[in-house]
Amino acid sequence: MMKQSPILIAAFILGAFAVAGVGVVAVTHAMTDQRIVANQRQAMLNKLEAIVPDGQLKNDPLADRIRVDRPELLGASNVAVYRVRDGDAPIALILEPVVPDGYAGPIRLLVSVLTDGSLGGVRVLEHHETPGLGDKIEERKSDWIIQQFTHKSLSDPPEEHWKVKRDGGVFDQFTGATITPRSIVNVVRNTLKFVEEESARLYAEPAIGSESGA
């Protein structure tokens, strides 16, 4: 028994430090939890607000959220749709489609479609494209994504021109990176198609509430 005691003491010390470590993390977590959730919410709201016409975001689209399942158009199943309204009047649908065939893995987009079927804007939420080449799709690296998509719709340009210039369409590609813009143009066009088909249902469906509330 005596010989075991140093091991037991060591085990006890280790256990005590594990508890203390968890304590430090738990206290910090409790202190910062609300602020972190608020930060994430605000960051997402800022992104949504940027692709809706100025001053028209009056409801809480994060709470007015549904999920839709059309992987062949939206690139993934269970895609979130945020609904922007002014009172009862619909303003825009903001979808989170996924570009499955980015150059270096999937690209998550944020696409806002206004009630007249035109694009309020497109943004990239997450991507793994090559720095300096494909990453020009980020709005802080270049204004490509703003220039190319804002105000476009399925009739402007006509659907057969929803391609990058190299494929005979109207959208600019980057020097040295065609794959990334090509796949994004594709998914944005498909998203527009999806909304055109389903717009009425998308606005009417009951909301499932915001992520943090669920």
Binding site: I13, L14, F17, A18, A20, G21, V22, V24, V25, T28, H29, M31, T32, R35, I36, N39, Q40, A43
Partner: peptide
């Protein structure tokens, strides 16, 4: 024990950054 101590502080710093330097 050293690893535990370091890991706890790193997690705490990460949470603090998430809260104040998002």
């Amino acid at each position: 024990v050293f690893v535990l101590v370091i890991a706890s502080f790193v997690t705490a710093v990460e949470l603090l950054m998430k809260a104040y330097l998002y």
